[in-house]
Structure formats: C-alpha cells, structure tokens
Simulated assay, not measured.
Amino acid sequence: MFPVDTLNTRMQAITSSCKTPAITLRQSLGSIMKLEGLGGFYRDIDATGLGAGPALAVYFSVYETCKKFHPDADCVKRVMVEEEIGALYASYRTTVVMNVPFTAVHFAIYEAAKRGLMEVSRESGCYWDDDGTFLVHTTAGAVAGVLAAVAAIAAITPLLDIVKTNCNAR
C-alpha cells in the first residue's frame, strides 16, 4: 500500500500547496516515474518501517496476552446476534472526533520537529538532503508521537472518552 499512499500524499500536497487545479492520478504517477523512478514510490519507507515494527510488536503482544483471558473471542459474534451490526459502530463519530485532533497535532508537530532538526543540522555543518534522512524522520516522528500523545491525554482524550463511555452506556 505504500506506493498508493505516496501517490495520494503527493497529489494532496501539490493540490493544497499550489494554486493550481488538482492533478490526476495519471499525471502524478507519470511525474514520480519520470523524476524519481520506481524508488520514488517507496521514498521514506525506512522511517515508516522503523516506527511500525516496534508499534506492531507491542500491539500484537498485547493482543496475544488478551486472547489468553478471552480464548473463545466470540465478542463480535455475540454483539451481532444480541445487538445487531449497529452496535459495532455505536461510538464511531466520537472515535473520529478523538482521532482527527490527535492526528492533526501529530502531523503538525512532526513537520515542525523535522524543520527544526534540518535547520540545526545545516547550522552544525551536517548536510542532509531537502527532505532529511532516516535519523531526522525517526527523531521527528518520535518527538511528535510523544508530544501528540501527551496533548491528547492531557486535553482531548479524557473529555471525549467520557462522552463516548456515556453514549455507549445508554
């Protein structure tokens, strides 16, 4: 999916940053192939992979641990039988409202941290290409993840969790 995400991101960036009409999928695909070759579709995958590995390791470790306490894993089936499919989406709107601010803060902090790291690296005599390197991306991502999580935990998440819990209880 990384090449598809790359296309999507590039199309959005060009359309939002320039006062030009939206470009087509074919134009974006052709541009990346012409200017960067096939590797352009996988640019920055190293940073994504580095972050995804530990995150998924923790995620699946918790998942496997929880399965020991609920070996039958029949929750979805029971909800479908007892409450119908709508119960699976009872807090969908609230979940979206919780995730959109977090994601916005996360990306804003990431971009600011990346710019700051690039500036510091240039001033110190180290030269990285315009988009940075693996170290810049991972450091900026880690800083952004921590600060966005702290902001979400401190300001947004508790309030929305209360709303979600109260809506689900009814």
Rank of each mutant, 00 (worst) to 15 (best):
M1H: 08
V4W: 10
V4R: 11
N8V: 14
T9K: 08
M11Q: 11
Q12K: 10
I14W: 03
I14R: 08
S17H: 06
K19H: 10
T20L: 06
P21Y: 05
P21R: 13
A22G: 10
L29M: 13
G30W: 03
S31R: 07
M33G: 00
K34N: 06
G40T: 08
Y42P: 00
R43Q: 10
I45R: 01
D46K: 15
A47Y: 07
A47L: 02
A47G: 15
T48W: 15
T48F: 14
L50C: 09
G51E: 05
A52T: 14
G53R: 03
P54Y: 11
A57V: 14
Y59L: 12
S61A: 15
S61E: 03
V62Y: 13
V62F: 11
V62R: 06
Y63T: 07
H70F: 11
A73I: 05
R78I: 13
E82D: 13
E83Y: 13
E84N: 14
I85N: 00
I85D: 00
I85C: 00
G86C: 02
A87R: 12
A87K: 08
L88G: 02
L88I: 06
Y89P: 00
A90K: 14
A90G: 00
S91T: 15
Y92H: 08
V96M: 11
V97C: 06
V97N: 04
M98D: 10
F102V: 10
F102Y: 15
T103E: 06
A108N: 01
A108Q: 01
Y110D: 04
A113M: 03
K114M: 09
G116E: 09
M118G: 13
E119A: 15
E119G: 00
R122G: 01
R122D: 11
S124G: 05
C126T: 12
W128K: 02
W128P: 00
D129N: 04
D129E: 08
D129R: 01
D130G: 14
V136I: 15
V136W: 05
H137W: 13
H137I: 01
T138F: 14
T138P: 00
G141N: 06
A142M: 12
V143E: 05
V143K: 02
V146A: 09
L147E: 03
A148I: 08
I153M: 07
I153N: 05
A155Y: 15
A155C: 09
I156T: 07
L159I: 03
L159V: 08
V163M: 04
K164F: 06
K164V: 02
A169L: 10
R170A: 02
R170V: 10
